[in-house]
Design a binder for these strands. Sequence first.
DNA 1: GGTACTGCCTGACTAGAGTCAGAGAAATGG
DNA 2: CCATTTCTCTGACTCTAGTCAGGCAGTACC
Lengths: 285, 285
Amino acid sequence: MDAGVVATVRRFSRTVTQRFGALNEHYLGGARPLGEARLLWEIGDGRDLRTLRATLGLDSGYLSRLLRSLEADGLVTVQADAADRRVRVARLTTAGKRERRALDRRSDGVAEAVLAPLSPRQRERLVAAMAEVSQLLRVGMVEVEAVDPGHPDVLPCFQAYFADLAVLFEDGFSPDAVLQPAIEVVLLARLGEATVGCVALYEPEPGVWELKRMWVDSSARGLGLGRRLLAEAEALARQRGASAMRLDTNRSLTGAIALYRSAGFEEVPPFNAEPHAHHWFHKAL
Amino acid sequence: MDAGVVATVRRFSRTVTQRFGALNEHYLGGARPLGEARLLWEIGDGRDLRTLRATLGLDSGYLSRLLRSLEADGLVTVQADAADRRVRVARLTTAGKRERRALDRRSDGVAEAVLAPLSPRQRERLVAAMAEVSQLLRVGMVEVEAVDPGHPDVLPCFQAYFADLAVLFEDGFSPDAVLQPAIEVVLLARLGEATVGCVALYEPEPGVWELKRMWVDSSARGLGLGRRLLAEAEALARQRGASAMRLDTNRSLTGAIALYRSAGFEEVPPFNAEPHAHHWFHKAL
DNA sequence: GGTACTGCCTGACTAGAGTCAGAGAAATGG
DNA sequence: CCATTTCTCTGACTCTAGTCAGGCAGTACC
């Protein structure tokens, strides 16, 4: 990789670490230790310890100790869950909520301090560049995972997909009318906790795999995620013995159509009776 | 400050921390602890402990222990300085240099991993945005400090200034010909260790302060540093009882001339015999 | 009712990153 | 030459952020 480009990235990392490091120390330093602060934040309006452990990736013993410390400061209470008395639920006290707001204000303070020394014009440039960096870094954090169709994260994706279609299709959309194929596998695009995209695959005829319900969340558009899902779907199908891939789509989805064409799909006559389909595509693998 | 802007900055900070944090852990984790790695880096081709303490901001006892640990691993040697045997100098052994290169490669690895998942077009955008962020964050890190003309950092600035002029002036430049006023105070612009700008002040007539040798390093141009130095110079002069400020400049320095005008300076007849001056400016405070 | 399993807590331990108070050797000032 | 200062090192501590093993209470399954 180009040395100048690598140098720019390294310099970026160093500068950001230094700048935010110094300001964090100034604004957050002397306050609560990081572990407790993150916990305080995550408890919010009450969470059971199991969830807290999972989202923060903490050891059970360590979490317990952190909670004892916050409890000693009167910031949280921990009580047994009514339904299952093994499970314990942490809740913020009034003082805890106050502390949480204070942490929040201090984080705002850091952000303001970053912008403060700049002219309005420079601020605009910095904020725009930061937004660009965040977005592009997020691209690299997306992980694509193959799950089976019964996976709990699949249904919400399909529902989000249908909801999007209802808005996009010129001639309306009804989820009940669409074909319900026997889906074999679903690729989920994950960004940390959130699921930001999906595509379903099944094998309508031996050797031919069909793509259904390719969806990318609005928060993750413009990151090339559609292309990536398509590529991973092809790889997966090929790995399972596919010799061809096909899909249908609606004329309103111009972006998707352009993507399919540029990925080597060619338009073919209708191969199914999908009610909302206007274009049918095929690609030999 | 606008909440959306603050949210963008906070999101940026979170995303960058997460992304680089995860990659650093992956590439640098398991290797040498951070403190030792930084020290190894900073020692380079041999540094005395006093300098190391200053640049890394370490406690003397702590530095000593870190060095013992690196010494035990055969990466550095520490010897008394020949001139002053109280001072000790740390040097990398061959193994130490190898280790330092390895750390370096791992840092490159992090940078490459950030770019790897992106398309060429996205990489370009990311690198451009990162450069912009670095530059603008650096603006906020610049500190302006008033020192007296004998300060050791002053002379290198003036020399850099003269070297720049020699390149810029259409009709050449000789440092020996310029006036040598009795400078009262120098403002230095500091960016971490480096001095990236300066301006000298003196009082040729009671109540009138004159600016000389305003310089901004090429690495820090376009950050509004000139304007800031000018503003700080005015503030300092006013504080010391100035009622007016003046300066002269060369016709080749069009950027500087525009800056003076926009800061409220007005062109006046020559008030000195500076050999390289074409324009003379004055501003009532 | 017994057994296995969950969920949580406690005690014991580790590593990194420091801080602080002297002690001792070398240099400097008078 | 002696006192003071400078520079470094050692020993004793601290705080944060964990990990690991074992134990107890509650729930679920047979």
